[in-house]
Design a protein around this nucleic acid. Structure first.
Length: 186
DNA sequence: CAGTGGATGCTCT
DNA sequence: GAGCATCCACTGT
């Protein structure tokens, strides 16, 4: 997947990432859930295009990784979109494991396979993503991204775990997938 | 099942 | 010093 794919409006890119494949050092699978974050959005780490120490990677060109620590414990992986002047990103919240299942189970401990990557923190743990991956380009190893090969049935809803701008329907998922972090409302 | 609370570390005001 | 783009274990049905 080329950087140009990401250098478009984030609300256009995010739904197209559902069904795409993401691998980190060969471990990963099919993305089934994402959320979009935009500069006009109080919930974004780069609200108002304000650069901070943490969010630097969001100001790179579309096609880079933005990895941050969540609740002091977990890592969360974003795919940076748009340009160096518009700090937007897509949070990868869940994927259906396809390759490297043994590595995922080893990193996460023995859990049901449907929970290996069901949530942004779990996903990073399973794929081995840490802060060292922040600001890396997505177009070459350790990352590998493949555009979706099918037209998925999309589910849309409000984003999860927010207090600010919690009403915006910027969560996109593969309808009915058992690998979601949470089901979408009917 | 649903709901609650603790762990944990960094960013930002 | 407050507040998290979370997860898990534990409680009580």
């Amino acid at each position: 997947m080329k950087a140009a794919f990401f250098q478009r409006p984030v609300l256009e890119v995010a739904p197209e990432l559902v069904g795409a494949e993401l691998y980190v050092d060969g471990v990963g699978g099919v993305i089934v859930e994402v959320e979009a974050y935009h500069p006009d959005d109080r919930a974004s780490h780069a609200f108002g295009n304000r650069r901070t120490k943490r969010n630097g990677a969001m100001f790179l060109a579309g096609g880079h990784a933005y990895v941050y620590r969540s609740y002091g414990i977990h890592w969360c992986l974003n795919l940076v979109c748009e340009s160096d002047e518009v700090a937007a990103a897509v949070l990868v919240r869940a994927l259906e494991p396809r390759r490297g299942l043994e590595a995922m189970r080893a990193r996460r401990g023995s859990m049901a396979d449907r929970l290996l990557c069901a949530g942004p923190g779990r996903l990073c743990q399973a794929l081995g993503v840490t802060g060292e991956y922040d600001a890396l380009p997505l177009g070459r190893p350790p990352f590998e991204l493949r555009a979706r090969q099918f037209e998925p049935e999309l589910a849309v809803g409000p984003r999860i775990g927010l207090t600010k701008a919690a009403d915006r329907p910027w969560r996109f998922g593969l309808a009915g997938s058992p690998y979601l972090s949470r089901a979408f409302a009917a």
